[in-house]
Design a binder for these strands. Sequence first.
DNA 1: CCTCCATAGTGAGGATTGTCACATTTTGCT
DNA 2: AGCAAAATGTGACAATCCTCACTATGGAGG
Lengths: 234, 234
Amino acid sequence: MTRSLTFVQQISPDFLEKLYTLATERHFSAGAVLYMDGDPAECLYLISSGQVKLTKTTVDGKELTLQVFGAGELVGLAGLFEVELVHTASAAMLENGVVRAIPRSGLEQLLMKNGEFCVDFMRWMGIMNRRMQSKFRDLLLNGKVGALYSTLIRMCNTYGEERPEGIYINLSLTNRDLAHFIGLTRESVNRMLSDLKKQQVIDLLPQGHILIKNLPYLKETICCDDCPPEICQM
Amino acid sequence: MTRSLTFVQQISPDFLEKLYTLATERHFSAGAVLYMDGDPAECLYLISSGQVKLTKTTVDGKELTLQVFGAGELVGLAGLFEVELVHTASAAMLENGVVRAIPRSGLEQLLMKNGEFCVDFMRWMGIMNRRMQSKFRDLLLNGKVGALYSTLIRMCNTYGEERPEGIYINLSLTNRDLAHFIGLTRESVNRMLSDLKKQQVIDLLPQGHILIKNLPYLKETICCDDCPPEICQM
DNA sequence: CCTCCATAGTGAGGATTGTCACATTTTGCT
DNA sequence: AGCAAAATGTGACAATCCTCACTATGGAGG
């Protein structure tokens, strides 16, 4: 839908080229873990193909999915220019894919030597930050139903494909997966999705794909104030 | 308690000095609005004295408090190096105070001309981002009680003062204020605080000040995994 | 000192969401 | 195609949290 630019689309080709020279290409199979919460943050990962899920878990096993990144996105930037930096989330492949691993130290040197590259990087960090703030509000302030609706709206923008029947969310999601985006139970998600299906707002396609048939309905019920499209993303 | 460094403490004196030359000092009285959600993001504000509350509201009036910033903190960085950038939250003074307004364009030029300053800035942005991610998980995954406990723990680190009787949270908060940090109702906060007081975990002092007498209790009940102190902040 | 007003405190009842249990359907694999 | 595993769908009940209504308390100001 209003898909925003990926990381590689937002930075200059020059910078990208330099990044590639630092990178080593690595192949991962579905389920493989790029890093775990608490691991030293030595590498960043630029996704060439496949999808990467970023999660935070509590000690008692509850999981929160922060993001699912696709090709062209950068994953694993815990921070920059800090000593003894560790990851504060875990990242795993959702499907077989190829990523370029970039050592953080290399990126830092690149940024220090080429001040002009910092511009792109800081712009990108700012966007990510605003996205999270806006997600924050939506997930906390509109109750769980609002949280789900908001998530569906964002998914339209991030993973959506315009189709004659509606907006197809190009992400294979079980009810449980969706629940983890919001902090809901699988059963609650199931009931809410069933209701939406009954009301013809969405359609549930095989393989866990969702088709949004009535996006305005979702936006109206949560009083979506049409925030800028690069912000209203997963 | 484990208070982390403020923005001005994290950046080099050189950078700070240059920032000051760009800034114009402005006095605000309690309640004054620095900017509103949707306003063009032309200025950043470096707090000299007083406290600034950063909020996001929904169209139907519900409010979420993102942060309360004190002296030495930087407020209003919506993003950098973007055109037609607008604020995505509102900022208002909680008490009379002095801030230095820095034009965003000036900061951007400063960063472009002095690449070495970007390092400090990006480090700071990374820390802010990790903080929000961790808050995100705590507020969504542990239920509302866990959200409150987590908020109290973070407040100990950010606004806390060690005292013989416990940790004094140096922030004047009504029940409603506290509720807005979490997405709760005033009544629920009231009941939860009353319970904690009955259990001798906290003490409620006049003027909306809270004294934490049993921090380990709060940490244990939400299975706090002792994340790095610069992250476990408001 | 008294009044007013904002805040705190509390009960009752309803709405929402979670938990558990189980039947049904879909999916992945050989 | 057939089987096992995973995911979905659903009901009953419990727990949580919100809403509304009201009283009590504590400062600020006349």
